[in-house]
Simulated scan of single mutants.
Amino acid sequence: MQLVVARIGRAHGIKGEVTVEVRTDEPELRLGPGAVLLTDPASAGPLTIESGKVHSGKLLLRFEGVRDRNAAEALRNTLLIAEIDPEELPEEEDEYYDHQLMDLDVVLADGTEIGRITEISHLPSQDLFIVERPDGTELMIPFVSEIVTEIDLEEQRAVIDPPPGLIDDRAEIVSSRDAEDAESGEDA
């Protein structure tokens, strides 16, 4: 199983260090010295982390064989990918790896089917489930405990309690808006 753990940013200094945008909750495990990471594009790697440090709130990494600013800058926007055992679980009980959540059925507490998780988007403020609905449309569900009330890996489902408006059918919203416009005499 492969997991994107970081994206390489710009070069830092003249000795081959790069800034990285961390995309894992376990950077100390995935981005430590000696870690060998695959890359996307594959032509950039694999890369072995030689050293790392935090500078001004950003993680800086140096890779074996990358000794100057030009070599570091050539790696910009490269994704760093870790190989992980599919049976490996996060340390915390209420944490999940993306591969555990992919393809889970999303349902309401009463069992009403909403769709299936097709992607997890990691934003700075929160993670989002990208859910494909049965009609092929996509829906974004914030992965926060107030909305995602249960993850049941055995049953392969995520139970949600959405606030009003989060999963309303767009067709119903559009048709009700059209009906209101027709009543008021406005053109849609």
Rank of each mutant, 00 (worst) to 15 (best):
E92N: 07
L75F: 07
L59K: 07
N70A: 14
S184D: 13
L47P: 12
I167R: 08
G65K: 05
L139N: 07
E183R: 14
V4F: 04
I8C: 06
L38V: 00
V148T: 10
A109E: 15
I160E: 01
E150K: 11
G9I: 05
D103C: 02
V36A: 09
R7N: 09
L47E: 10
G34Y: 05
V20W: 02
A109Q: 15
G65H: 06
I173M: 13
E83M: 08
V20C: 06
K15N: 14
F63I: 03
P134Y: 08
Y96K: 02
I114V: 15
G52F: 00
V4L: 12
E150A: 11
V107I: 14
R7K: 15
A35F: 03
T118M: 07
I14S: 14
A158T: 05
T39I: 02
V22N: 10
T118C: 02
A158D: 04
A6H: 09
I141W: 02
P41C: 06
E113H: 13
I49W: 01
I141N: 04
G34F: 05
F63L: 03
E88G: 01
L60H: 15
L79G: 01
D94Y: 12
A72H: 03
F63D: 02
I49H: 01
D161V: 10
S43T: 11
A182L: 14
D127V: 00
I120G: 05
R23T: 02
G13K: 10
D187L: 13
G136L: 11
L3C: 06
K58N: 13
L31T: 04
D161M: 12
A42G: 13
S184L: 15
Q2V: 07
P90D: 11
E132P: 02
G115R: 01
D178H: 08
L3W: 07
D169C: 04
E50G: 07
E73W: 04
V20N: 03
P163C: 00
L166Q: 13
E150T: 07
E154K: 03
Q2M: 06
D25W: 12
V174E: 12
V22S: 11
N70D: 14
E186G: 04
L123E: 13
L101F: 07
V106Y: 00
D152L: 09
L139C: 08
I49F: 01
S184F: 12
R30W: 08
R177S: 14
A74Q: 11
L128V: 02
A182K: 13
R133Q: 15
A171G: 09
D181L: 15
H122F: 10
E95T: 01
S121W: 10
I8H: 04
T24E: 05
I84Y: 04
V18H: 00
V36G: 03
G111R: 04
I14C: 03
S43N: 08
A6S: 12
L79V: 01
I130S: 08
D103L: 13
